[in-house]
Design a protein around this nucleic acid. Sequence first.
DNA 1: TTGTATGCGTTATCAT
DNA 2: ATGATAACGCATACAA
Lengths: 319, 319
Amino acid sequence: MVSIKDIAKKAGVSISTVSYALNGSPKVNADTSRRILQIADELNYVPNAAARTLKKRHTMIVGAFITSFEGAFYGELLQGMKDMLNKQGYDLIICSGTQSHRLLPEGMLDGAIILDATFDSDELLKYANRGHKLVVLDRELKHENISQVLLDNKAGATLAMEYLIESGHRKIYAVTGPTESFDAEQRLQAVRLTVERNHPLEYIEIQGDFTKSSGEEAARRIKDEYSGPAAVFCLNDEMAVGLYHELKKSPYRIGEDIFVVGFDNIETASYLQPQLATIDYSKRRFGAVAAEQLLHLIAGGPSVHERIYVNLIKTPSVF
Amino acid sequence: MVSIKDIAKKAGVSISTVSYALNGSPKVNADTSRRILQIADELNYVPNAAARTLKKRHTMIVGAFITSFEGAFYGELLQGMKDMLNKQGYDLIICSGTQSHRLLPEGMLDGAIILDATFDSDELLKYANRGHKLVVLDRELKHENISQVLLDNKAGATLAMEYLIESGHRKIYAVTGPTESFDAEQRLQAVRLTVERNHPLEYIEIQGDFTKSSGEEAARRIKDEYSGPAAVFCLNDEMAVGLYHELKKSPYRIGEDIFVVGFDNIETASYLQPQLATIDYSKRRFGAVAAEQLLHLIAGGPSVHERIYVNLIKTPSVF
DNA sequence: TTGTATGCGTTATCAT
DNA sequence: ATGATAACGCATACAA
């Protein structure tokens, strides 16, 4: 490995002059500087991240922690973060699983964006207390080193339910999400509230877990109980996709016998037949805002709570 | 920040004793050790990654470089890598974009898995020459520090084409991939060879780029030219999805007028109606094998070239 | 403008 | 069994 020491030796100057030249300090003579840079290039010099970090106390790297690499949900979101971060000279790395949590406390990361319900809140709080900067996208957490940017789940769920009701449906299923999920919980609360407000309504809850297969399972139950037109609010699109798939094997047609609305507007949703009605929001913006808030926090700014607004996409899967 | 120095002070021992205790060395007295660990815990001590790395010359972190965070393709593959890596005590981080390339030469990573055609081969070779360990999944590259694990593209493409031909189709379109893509190039070569071998055949190539929208575009051209049953080999599933979608807007039916086979068996493919015939392989295994090879390289093992075998999934989209 | 010296937190060698 | 100390590569305050 070639270090500034090697460059210094070859250039006949001290390591500090090399360091200054490499960092573009105006203090060093233009000629000397050019010569040093030239030699550094010849030697294929690359600075050592560990040494630099040890000295400067930051890495210019931000981590995004997600539950799993699978699922079409994260793509755009991460891309939104990355673009924002790169613009400011930061790099984004994606991490998943408990083992990689260490990267944060060990100082490998200047901050983290959390989108992983399995990441314990107490652990997060512990890191925040140690001075680490965090942005949470999947829970409410009050701390000076933590900003939150959350989806407007309640507005979305209300929009979806009201759309079903306005379209004349009186029998409504809700396929719920995992109980640990903040988003699922918020959406469910709004659903129940809307049901109460629109009494009388035949309302049935089916426990789901945001996976396709739980959507399929829900479909089987709905098929079995079928006694006339029914509407279904799948609390996320992933389950709606599963539901569509399973329902294809039944005599019931979506948009005719069974009416469906989802949440998230994942890409697959637009490829379903009939196109799925759903709650849309800019995932790219979601990611960008999260990155932006983290950058603010890192720059010493205060904890801020942002909200991502949503809107309804109406399609023939409902009317 | 609390360092071993703080622990040493509080425990009334030297930093070297603390270091030994922390690393579970048998040289240090059990009582002393217990006391040190206790204090470290009270102080919420966490080792500093930069300092450790500077000394030990490795991070126990491996990076996977991908073209984009979007697309359903990577999920299982990355999961396969992660599981294998974690089992051996390594962490996996996902990187995308030129800016993050620095993590490798700067010593932040013990090795990298490359699945990003936009990552220049010369640059890769440069890193390999500097001693960095690499596994490439998307090109052929001979170097003692580089292992390759490649899909058996030619077998897959041949299988797909022969399936079309055996099913009696004599007019065949191939929707190609980006010319920079090794996989696309390999598949295309096999396609052309199969065409020659099965003369006479009406064979038409449509330039694609592995994206959904290029599949849609291909569909429009095929629609316009329609003069009777035609078969289409989309060199990846992503384009087949786009083709399906666009063809829905036409009078032609897949499996009746137009016959389609894809490559990759992405999850969406199984949700298409009729289900898409395609070339399947275990993405999880693909990732696991890649990780395994990297681990071997890191352990000082020789460069090895592995191949991932594929097989055909037959469905009514063809017959 | 350039050089000297120190320290970042850790590991590890060598004494004791 | 424990301590003193050097070294990893770099940035920077201070001296010259």
